[in-house]
Amino acid sequence: MTVQPGQCNCAAESFTERDVVAIVEKYGREQDQLLAMLLDIQEASGSSCVLREWAAIVAREIGLPLSKVFEVLTFYSMFSTEPRGRYLVEICKSAPCKMCKSDEVVAMFEKELGIKLGKTTPDKLFTLMHTSCVGACDIGPVAKIGEDVYGDLTPEKVSEIVNSYREKN
């Protein structure tokens, strides 16, 4: 089973209004810090998303209409308003990685995670997706997981990497 749009995610349930407000306050409620706030919320949520209700709290706290916050949320590709896995496994599909066979890396992760590209694992730990260039073309094809970038991938290495994240949980 994969997470469907609109379906609630356990990790997201433990993330509350208080957590959202704490992040907004960390940035002094400054409107120009909206992107940083939303990225922090997404990272802390455990579900790699900013739910509509959290966006509404941010809007209220920094004095912006919800439509403005939503405009930002839906413009930048790092944001999602639908729950995703705790870890986003992003495979670069830009030209330098593509010509170094990034499609094979997608297949390796699909096999290791048991899901197709664009889907989330049933334990809600991983979402497998494509990304544009992450600036690691010297070690392409690359996968980015959270802040970490992995290059020159082989099936063995992929298995090792995925397991290291599984062990963290």
């Binding site: 830009s94 030209a95 260039c133 073309c137 010297d138």
Partner: peptide, 11 residues
């Protein structure tokens, strides 16, 4: 905002 694919010198 180094986003031009194939560019990683600012990094």
């Amino acid at each position: 905002d180094e986003g031009e694919p194939g560019t990683f010198k600012d990094k």
